[in-house]
Design a protein around this nucleic acid. Structure first.
Length: 681
RNA sequence: GGCGAGGUAGCUCAGUAGGUUAGAGCAACGGAAUCAUAAUCCGUGUGUCGUGGGUUCGAAUCCCUCCCUCGCUACCA
């Protein structure tokens, strides 16, 4: 009979930046806690992750730095791999999608689907940027809508009027990459008909939800997709960076990254077993009937893991004898904020994992994040909370309990586990509590209630302190040494249980405790039993957590605050020539009248005098100004901006304004003596 | 504006198949103890459950209005 196997995957981080605390709380820490727990239960489990290394953003970063994409992915693959190691992620393998085995796996899937006749091939005219030497994705081309004449329309659809058209119909196309006029070239792409899988996907999700109780946020998300109806989706694109399309006449075409990245879980598993010298063993997991597959992700990834990946596996299973298993559950978390605001790479808001771990222990972070996981909604990380959790709970409650017990035993019992004597009611009660705890915690973890699980284990430390207090061993030491020994024996068993149950959350600390009691973890179910035998020699006590002082918090708080202003000082923008600048005509104009644009919360319709006449300008300043205070102001406008329609109103120019940290806009004004139409140089 | 999520104790968050006095951790206040990292333990909450209405014997929980926040998105910054 097949023993049950478990695959756990954590979302593949994109190798275009360093992971931050939000990523950890969203997917990685929950996955690691779950995996470590299942390992302690003796389960046959593999834990898979790796870098997602293809796609346009990586090539853009590479271009900016004038290096090859390989340099970028090598850099972030290394950074993230090391970050995860230091954070204590216990992946069995951390692969990468640039690996040979991944390219082969992805091509295999593509060819298999291709040969099944699953794809439809569509020829389209696509814009090509001769300067950048690449086909342009739709969102990188802007032009004027052939239907409503609005600027800013994409190459295939206008978001203003909703019209769909062929790229050849778009007027005045401009490449957003080079700013040049792109040329139309014919190209063809393959599409996967997700719509054909919708019914089965709905059934699948419904079934797994009934059996495994999916999270509400995941179900809601899927419902939205199903409601809109799944569409055919292109799985190839014109690019040189990625997995080459394995067909004749498909030069310069790669698999779309969303199609191949999820297959990285499978290819990384192949690599894992190949290292172990068991080349075909990966099938026992991915194609084993008795395998449970759980995919940990953040909410941004729900569609790929709950809909697209299952659809791909279904498609494979339809046409082949070997059948892949589908995810049993996709426990996606929401997002973690940082001091009340969203993590933002571009604004440099937040903190990288490596930076954090240069200042503090991984377990302090793991514990804090675990108690604050965004399991049901976005949650917040704050320095004050971090400090409080570390000091009041890890150091004071857990650390001090271990320390007071250990030092007591060393002082009065030669560092050996005292005998368990006659049991009082209180002793029996404490032993029962310890016995019951592993199941209690296991139940929570199985339901992915990791926050509650963590809180409950800390509650055991509280109960242990209470037991120690109520037993008053410092008194019984003189009055009844046997009873004193009994109290200490039970307290030591509590330490052992805490070390075991806390292992998934704070593994480094658990190891320290096990070393201190000179022992090793047993299987989860037995963790609450009397595992330290009488007379067993204990190791030396060490302080588990030193207090985090205010200065340490202030220091790092300042550092992260500075990081934000650094970016403002050095905005990433290309240098322009004086000629480029002279293309922009800035002129002084006087606001004659102002009124709100109907149904818009921030647009205000202005009539301005530009010296040579009146014109209408729509400005997005409605949240910062009321129409009454605007007339009379002399402002700076871009006079030669191509007209655009906004909310049905034509705008013939643009008012310059600055935005402060609260998002309040301030229009640039000049002295009232300046006459209308004056050119700004 | 559209779509989605959310507004519960000072802070971070639980709690909805509607039902006795709305919870946890932290903080705060009072007390006990002194083995221990000035640590621990006990006790203490008059919270408009965002607002206003509705359904109901009964609503944080269901329905509607409105306000606010966040994310995605369209909005000329």
């Amino acid at each position: 009979m097949n023993t049950e196997k478990i695959i756990v995957t954590a979302a593949l981080p994109y190798a275009n930046g360093a992971i931050h605390l939000g990523h950890l709380a969203g997917a990685y820490l929950p996955a690691d806690i779950y995996v470590r727990f299942q390992r302690l239960r003796g389960k046959d489990i593999i834990f898979i992750c790796g870098s997602d290394e293809h796609g346009v953003p990586i090539t853009i970063t590479a271009d900016k730095e004038k290096v090859s994409p390989q340099v970028i992915i090598d850099r972030y693959h290394e950074i993230n791999k090391i970050s995860f190691e230091k954070f204590g992620m216990s992946f069995d393998i951390y692969g990468r999608t640039s690996s040979k085995v991944h390219h082969e796996t992805a091509k295999e899937f593509f060819l298999n689907f291709y040969n099944q006749g699953l794809f439809s091939e569509k020829k389209t005219m696509q814009f090509y940027d001769n300067k950048a030497n690449m086909f342009l994705p739709d969102r990188y081309v802007e032009g004027t809508c052939p239907n409503c004449n609005t600027d800013g329309a994409r190459s295939d659809e206008c978001e203003n009027c909703g019209a769909l058209y062929n790229p050849s119909e778009l007027k005045n196309p401009i490449s957003k990459i080079s700013g040049e006029k792109p040329e139309l070239k014919e190209t063809s792409h393959w599409f996967i008909p997700l719509n054909k899988f919708q019914d089965r996907l709905q059934e699948y999700i419904n079934d797994r939800n009934l059996r495994f109780n999916w999270k509400e946020n995941v179900l809601q998300y899927c419902k939205g997709w199903f409601h809109d109806g799944l569409q055919e989706r292109a799985i190839t694109r014109d690019l040189d960076w990625g997995v080459k399309v394995p067909l004749e006449n498909a030069d310069h075409k790669v698999l779309y990254v969303w199609f191949e990245a999820v297959l990285g879980y499978i290819s990384a598993t192949k690599e894992l077993f190949s290292h172990r010298g068991q080349d075909s063993s990966w099938r026992e997991y991915w194609q084993g009937e008795n395998t449970r597959y759980i995919a940990f992700i953040g909410k941004d990834n729900i569609v790929f893991h709950a809909i697209i990946f299952p659809a791909m596996l279904m498609a494979w299973n339809d046409g082949n004898k070997d059948k892949y298993i589908l995810p049993e559950n996709v426990p996606a978390n929401e997002f973690l904020n940082f001091e009340g605001r969203k993590f933002s790479k571009s604004r440099n808001w937040g903190i990288d994992v490596l930076e954090f771990l240069n200042h503090f222990e991984a377990d302090s972070l793991r514990y804090t994040l675990a108690l604050n996981l965004p399991e049901l909604r976005d949650s917040d990380f704050s320095w004050n909370d971090f400090q409080a959790r570390h000091n009041n709970e890890l150091a004071d409650i857990l650390g001090n309990f271990v320390n007071r017990t250990m030092t007591f035993v060393h002082k009065h019992f030669e560092g050996k586990v005292p005998q368990l004597g006659k049991l009082s009611e209180r002793d029996v009660e404490m032993i029962d509590i310890l016995n019951g705890y592993p199941v209690k915690i296991a139940t929570l973890i199985e339901k992915y209630k990791l926050k509650d699980a963590t809180l409950e284990v800390m509650n055991l430390a509280r109960l242990s302190n209470k037991y120690f207090n109520d037993s008053e061993p410092w008194k019984t030491l003189k009055s009844d040494k046997e009873q004193c020994g009994t109290s200490l024996n039970i307290s030591l068993q509590a330490i052992y249980t805490l070390a075991g149950l806390f292992l998934p959350v704070i593994p480094f600390t658990s190891q320290k405790i096990f070393r201190m009691v000179n022992s090793r973890p047993v299987e989860w179910e037995n963790m609450g039993k009397s595992n330290l035998v009488e007379g067993h020699q204990l190791g030396e006590p060490v302080i588990l957590f030193k207090k985090v002082e205010n200065e340490m918090i202030e220091e790092i708080r300042l550092k992260t605050a500075n990081a934000e202003s650094d970016v403002k000082k050095e905005p990433e923008s290309e240098l322009i020539t004086i000629d480029d600048f002279s293309k922009v005509q800035l002129r002084i104009a006087e606001i004659l009248s102002a009124e709100r644009v109907k149904k818009s919360d921030k647009l205000i319709k202005l009539i301005v005098d530009t010296g040579s006449g009146k014109r209408q300008v729509i400005a997005g300043i409605g949240k910062s100004y009321s129409p009454e205070e605007l007339p009379g102001k002399k402002v700076v406008i871009v006079a030669n901006l191509k007209p655009a329609k906004l909310m049905g109103e034509e705008s013939q120019g643009m008012v310059l304004a600055v935005e402060n940290e609260q998002g309040i806009l301030n229009v640039v004004e000049v002295d009232s003596s300046i006459s209308n139409g004056t050119k700004v140089k």
